[in-house]
Computed example of a mutant assay.
Amino acid sequence: MIRVLIADDEALMRSGLQMILDLQDDIEVVAVVENGREAMEAARRKNPDVALLDIRMPDMDGLTATSAMTKLPSPPAVLVLTTFALDGNIEQALLAGAAGFLLKDTPPRELVEAIRVVMRGDAVLSPAVTRRVIELQRRQLSAHSGHSDHSKLLGRLTDREREVLPQLARGLSNADIARTLFMSEGTVKGHVSRMMDKLGVTNRVQAALIAFEAGVNDEQLGQGPVLRDDPADVAEPGER
Score class of each variant (00 low, 15 high):
S142N: 08
A207E: 02
I177H: 06
L154Q: 08
V33N: 07
A96N: 07
D230F: 13
F212N: 15
D122G: 05
E161A: 06
I115G: 10
F84I: 09
G97C: 02
L53N: 04
E34Y: 15
I177P: 05
L181T: 02
A178K: 04
L94K: 05
R131Y: 02
T202A: 10
L199F: 09
F182K: 15
A77I: 05
A77D: 08
P48M: 14
A7C: 14
G222Q: 02
V80F: 10
N35Y: 08
L136H: 10
A207L: 00
D159N: 13
R132D: 01
R228K: 13
M195T: 04
Q24W: 09
N89D: 04
Q167K: 13
A114S: 12
S145Y: 14
R156F: 07
M183E: 00
D49E: 03
M183I: 06
A114K: 00
D176M: 11
L111G: 00
Q92V: 02
Q18N: 12
A123V: 03
L81V: 15
T64C: 03
T106Y: 06
A98F: 01
L52M: 01
D26V: 01
L81P: 11
V226R: 15
L141F: 05
L165K: 03
T70L: 04
A211E: 00
A39T: 06
G222D: 01
N203I: 00
V129A: 13
F84H: 15
F212S: 14
D9P: 15
D9Q: 12
L172H: 05
R160G: 11
T180K: 13
V118E: 00
V50E: 07
L165P: 09
P75I: 14
E239P: 07
L157H: 12
V118G: 10
M13L: 03
V129F: 13
R139Y: 04
D61H: 12
K46M: 06
R170G: 09
E161R: 10
G222M: 05
L63V: 12
T82A: 00
S173A: 07
R37L: 07
R138W: 02
R44I: 08
D87W: 12
G146N: 04
S74E: 05
P76R: 13
V216I: 08
V80N: 02
R162A: 11
N217R: 15
M13N: 08
P48L: 06
D159F: 10
G100Y: 04
G121D: 02
D25R: 15
F84L: 13
V117T: 15
T70V: 12
T202P: 02
K46V: 15
D105G: 11
A11R: 14
I115D: 01
A235F: 07
P237E: 01
L63I: 14
T187K: 03
R156E: 00
R116N: 12
N89H: 11
P75H: 08
L79K: 10
A114E: 01
S151M: 00
E10G: 10
P107A: 11
L21M: 13
M195K: 00
G36V: 04
G100T: 14
E41S: 14
A68L: 11
T106Q: 05
N217I: 07
L227K: 15
I177Q: 07
P48T: 01
Q223V: 02
I55W: 07
L79S: 02
H150Q: 03
M13E: 03
T187P: 09
A235I: 04
V205S: 13
R179E: 04
V32G: 08
L86I: 09
A51R: 05
R56T: 12
P107E: 03
H150W: 01
M40P: 06
D9N: 12
D197S: 10
V32D: 15
